[in-house]
Every structure is written in structure tokens, then in C-alpha cells.
Nucleic acid binder design. Structure first.
Lengths: 213, 213, 213, 213
DNA sequence: CATGAATGAGCCTTCATTCAT
DNA sequence: AATGAATGAAGGCTCATTCAT
């Protein structure tokens, strides 16, 4: 099925905001990439900033929905964390443009919009914090600085969007598995593969992003 | 000692490029932050892009010099890696603005300039790769994907610049120590503190950045 | 009786052109005020300028018809002038939007259209000039500068559209009567009320504008 | 002495705002009329609206200063009113562009700016109201509706800016004198010339506007 | 050394208008 | 009859940069 114009605009924005930055992307660049005139752009978006905010919100909502899906009803913190890591890595490897926009362009947003976006991100990170804290409580995890470790994990996983290429030698599954192992090691937990956690993450990514691409 | 005007310009650029992005920072913003007129700015810089490139090059050269200092004549790969991690983390915690500019604004550079900058970064990352590879060869480190692990380590450590605050509860030394432990864990190496590695990193940071701030 | 869409468009234009000016009113403003889409607007009008010209012409034609009605077959110049003043004042008090558009937006029109509009206005003002000149000839009126006095009278009466409010304490009849007295005084003629002149004006306004509002 | 660029900008704005309206005047029109580029325009003004507000405020302040000058220490209300009329007429005949901008473009201003402008205008009109009220109290003036008469007077006099041409047959003095007579007649006061009132007005106009033009 | 003045190019956004459905 | 979609032109304003003083 062909894309709607609105989708083409959204995709153009994601691509250009990711590669050239929000301020580095002109409205004419967007129009050209979307294949319409710059005036027509405004049938499918509000302001340029609202377009950005929409992209960010959608991406974060998907990530949050996925994270809830992979952690709901899972009791073992190791399983929860492994799933979160795998989900995050898969998302950043499959949707590097969206996720880079989310990570890099927050400073552009107006104060009010930023608050809403940050709230979503905080809810998402809370799930990571819960898994880590539960693991520590249950002595599955050992770390001197849980909060710092959570940040280190998140930054490590987000970084995937900076370098991963689907054309490289590394498949998505092995990538996600490797990161899950790294994460468990960081938390002092034996790094054995946990295929169920990966399967949950794979499924969640498909659910929230579809099988596009 | 008072700053020279050139230093004030450089600092203004670092601060603003880091917080608002290169394209989000106007020449007038720079002038105001530096306390001079926008025309005077051009006595102390070339074009705006050259100013950016200078900042990036200087930061990367310092990082590279520090990395060489902490690894030269150190044979144990664990010591080398711990020092590299500690140096990187200290640098990103102490100079978050510079390092964020280096990490976020590469896409702005012209092809020729970018090549030179990327070369510096590659040389720097090579030192990490060498330590990891040596560690694997000596069976100090165990990891299925050395290249991926190197990238994961770098992203994890660079992320410090995104959130660390000197006004928070965590001191620089404990921060660096924690990250060194995380790194060794990621490489399957027992996470014991290695105070000599930290000391070398601390010294190197002072050498290349001075004791400013 | 419900308004036709064309009437709604016309009224929207009159209201907005009067309050925000022709160039200050966008096609989308008109559409919103009329309750249709901006594309539909073009079923009921030509260009925006033609819409303006239509409004002006209609208003001036009504004014001119009214003026002819109140002066035809009236011999006494004082009666004629009093009626013209009353008609003009009533029209500007009851139709302030239309009359303000006529008075303020002539400069917008193209040369050709402007000529036609100005011709109508000249014909209308001619009736005032005739009454004044006849009055002078008959020694009913005394003024050193008849032409200037005519302009002063017209401006004074048109000004009513700038400030009169039907919600204020002053009724339309007293308003018109007062202005008729002022006019006669300006022409050196005793300022006694002339109820017949007012009645003629009232009737003419109803004839040309209907009893709407 | 040659005009400063700022003065040229101001004059261009006055001329174009008066002839084409604020919204009908583009920033590029202003630049061309002022003989500079549209970017340079912004060295000499804030926003286009601030330029408008500045023009209005200056004109009204001059008018108010002149009105105070011609009424201060004058006891006879007839003299005061005659001076006010003459001043207003001379101002509108000599500075038709400024005064038309003041009269026609108030709707453009933002609420806050409009308040400040309207306050100035109210102070000015208050002087007219005082003269009329005093005259009535002293039985020099007779009018059934003082407030309406004040408005009629003001509109009549402001109208001069719509039609007066210095290239016409009517000199400024005779014009002002005629309007003073009309005004006194409107107030039921014998219309004899009062040369002192005119002299005061002439002098005040020179004081507040200089002898330019 | 420092800066007001200057500008061509470009910014984001809205304009009035047309047309296929 | 009605309107979403579309656009070239233009809107007000800011950009990075130069230069005479």
C-alpha cells in the first residue's frame, strides 16, 4: 500500500532531523524530501516544532508501550531487564532515525512541550529502575550505584542508533542478545542467554512498530 | 588570571553549541555570550564552522593525548582499559560541553574537515580496541563481539556528559571508579577497584585540561 | 428568513473589512466568519478585490438612491441639506461597517475600479454641493468657502460611523436631528428642527436598506 | 542638513502607511522607499508594528503638546476652542500622512500598545471637551449634545487630512480661519475671526513640528 | 582593536487562488 | 454545491559575513 502524504512528511522529517538536526533542516528540505511544495507541507503539519514534538511523542509512546508489554506479568528482574535491554536495542537498531531525534533534539522544544516529552521518557526509564531495584532487593543484581548503572545501561543501549547498520555482519538477534548479556554482567549477574526475554522483545517491537522495514 | 578575548569566544561557543546546537546558535548569541559585538567576533575566529572544528579538534587532541599518556608503558590490558574508561568518564564529567559538541555536531562539518576529525576519533578509539584485543588474547577479557563491546563501552562512557552534575551526590572519583568496574564486568573480568589506573587518569586529565574548574 | 450563503459571505466581508481592513483580512478569515471553506468562498465571489468593490458600489448606490429620494421635488435648500445630513448620519450610524469600508479602503482598488467608485461618490456629493450652492444663491446660507464647507460637512457626518453605538444613550432620531442642526448652523442658518426633513431621511434609509436590524 | 537613515525610514513608513495602509505596505516597500535593503531596515526599527506605534505616539504627543501650548493660560473658552480647531486643522493639513496613520491604523496595534495610544488621544480630546464644557457653563456656547458636538468637531477637522492640498487655491491661514468659524457657529457662537487664536495655533505648530516642509 | 552599518540569502509561515473530486 | 489538496508568490524577519571608520 502506498504511503499517505502525511506519512511521507513524517518520514522525511525523521530522516532529515536525524541526519542534519532540527535547526539544520529547512522547511524546503522537508518539502523536497517529501516530494511536495513547502506550502503544501502545512496541510499535514502544524509548525515545524509541532512536527518534531509529534515524532518524539510517538516514538516514546511506542517505546513505553513495548516496555510495558515485555515487563507486565514478568516476575524475574533479570528477565525484565534483559527484555528491556533487548527491546531498546532492537528499537534503536531498527529505528535509528526516530530514536536519535528523540535523544538529540529535546533542547529544541518549548518548555511546555518539553515537559510532556520528558514525562514520557521518565515513565519509560522508571521501568528500568524498577527492574534494577527489584533485582538488587532479590540479590540477583549487585551494583554500588543503581541509579548510575541505570543511566550507563540506557546510554550504552541508545548508542546503538549511532553506529548499527543492518548491512553489517551482525544480525539483530545476535546484537540484542549481546547487549542483554552485557547488561546482566554490568549488574553482576551471570551472563547466560535468555531466549524468552529476547522473544518477548522481538514480539513487542513488531507490535508497536509493525513489521515495516 | 583573566581570560583572553579569544578564550571567552571559545568558551561561549562551547557552551552554546552544547546547549542549543551549532545551527541553533546564532552569531549574535555567541557575541552576546562573549561580551563583544558580532563584528568583533571575526577578529578571533574564522567562520562559524571553523570555530566549531577548532573546538572539536582541540577536545579530541586532548583526549587522545590523555589516552596515550595513560596507556603508554602499561602492559596489563585491564589496567589500560580501566584507565581509558576513567579518563573518558572524567573528561566527559568535567568537560560536558566540549565533549557533547564533539559527539553531536559532527554532521555539521564539511566533508574535508569531517575526515580530519574522524581520523582523530578513530586513533583514539583504536587505543580502546587495542586494550580490548590484547585482553582477549591474554584471556583477561571474554566477549563474543569485541568490536560491539568497544562501541558499547564508548557510548556508555560518553553518556556521562548527558547527565552528570558536579552538584549531585556523586564525586568524580567514585564515578570514574564505578564506570571502570562496569567496564571490567562487561569484559568478563572480576570487578575489583584498581586505584593506580584511576590515579593515572586523574593525572592525565589535569595534564591535558589543566586544573581549571 | 434565513440568509443565503452569498449574503453571509457579503456580511462577513463587510464586518471584517471594516474592523481589520482589507489587507488585514485573509481569505481564511472570511471563510470562517461565513461558515464555509475558503474554496467554497469562490462560488459566491470573484476575487477578494471584486468582493470589496461590490460592497462599496452597493453601499454607494444605496446612499445615492436615498439622497435622490430625499432631495427630489424638494425646493427649499435648507430642507434638502437637512435631509441629506440626516440620511448620511442615519446610514453611517446604522451601517457603520459598510460605510467605513467605503471611506477607508478606496486606496485598495485598481485604477479602473476606483474610477467607477469615485464617480458614484462624486454624484452623491454633487447633491450636497447643489443644495449648498442653491442655498447661498437664495441667501439662506452664508459661507465664505462653499466647497470647503461641503467637505467639512461630509467628514463630520461620516465620522459618526467611527463612534456611534446603538447601545449608547443617544437615539438615532436625536442624533440625526442634532447633526442637521449643526449643519444648518455651519451654513449660518438658524438651527430650528425640521421634522419633515428627518422623516424623509428615515423613510429613505428604510427604502434603500430595508428595515433590517 | 541631510536626513539620517532613521529619519528616512520613518518618513517612508509614514508615507506608505498613509497611502496604502499598514497591512498594504510590505517590508520590502518600506526598504525601497527608504533607499536601503530590507535587512538594513532592522537596524533602525524594531518590528513593523513598533515602527507604526512610534509614528503614532510621536504624532499624538506633538499634537497634545501643541494643544496644551495653545490653551494654557487662555481663559476665554471661545479662544481656546478656536485655537484647538486651528491647530488641529493646520496639523492635519501640513502633516496629512502622519495624522491619517494615527486616525486609520489604530486597529492594527496590539491591545497593550493600543491602550497607550488611546490614552494619549483621550488626553488630547479632553482639552476639547474642557473648552466646550467651560463655554457652555459661561453661556458662550449653546449645544444640546456637548459630547456629540465634540466628536463632530473632531471628525470634521480631522477630515482635512483627507482632501487638503497645499497646491490648491486655499492657503493654510484661510483654511484654519474658516474651520474656526465653522466650529464657533456649531456651538452657537458668533463666527467672528479671532486672529490671536490663529496666531497661537500657527506658533504651536511650528514649535512642535518645526518649520519643516 | 572594535564596531555600527550594511546586505544577499535564507528562515518559517501565510497569502489568494485553482482544481479534481 | 462543496471542499480537501495543492502551490507560486509573498509575508515579516534573521542569518552569517564584510567593511569603512
Amino acid at each position: 500500500m502506498a504511503l499517505t502524504t502525511e506519512q511521507r512528511v513524517r518520514r522525511a522529517a525523521v530522516k532529515l532531523f536525524a541526519s542534519k538536526g532540527f535547526h539544520g533542516t529547512g522547511i524546503r528540505d522537508l518539502a523536497q524530501e517529501a516530494g511536495i511544495s513547502s506550502a503544501s507541507l502545512y496541510h499535514y503539519m502544524g509548525t515545524k516544532e509541532e512536527l518534531l514534538a509529534g515524532i518524539m511523542r510517538e516514538c516514546l509512546e511506542r517505546l513505553l508501550a513495548g516496555a510495558r508489554e515485555v515487563t507486565d506479568d514478568v516476575v524475574d528482574p533479570r528477565q525484565r531487564l534483559a527484555s528491556l535491554v533487548a527491546l531498546h536495542v532492537l528499537a534503536h537498531a531498527r529505528q535509528p532515525a526516530e530514536t536519535r531525534v528523540v535523544d538529540n533534539e529535546v533542547h529544541v522544544l518549548s518548555a511546555a512541550t518539553r515537559r510532556r516529552i520528558v514525562k514520557l521518557r521518565d515513565a519509560y526509564e522508571q521501568l528500568w529502575g524498577d527492574a534494577i531495584d527489584d533485582g538488587i532487593r532479590q540479590r540477583s543484581f549487585v551494583t554500588a550505584e543503581p541509579a548510575v548503572t541505570r543511566l550507563a545501561l540506557l546510554e550504552m543501549c541508545s548508542g546503538v542508533a549511532h553506529w548499527y547498520s543492518p548491512r553489517g555482519p551482525l544480525g539483530l538477534d545476535r546484537l540484542a542478545n549481546h547487549y542483554a548479556n552485557l547488561a546482566l554482567r554490568m549488574l553482576g549477574s551471570a551472563g547466560q542467554d535468555c531466549p524468552e526475554a529476547l522473544a518477548r522483545a522481538r514480539k513487542a517491537v513488531s507490535t508497536v512498530w509493525g513489521t515495516t522495514l
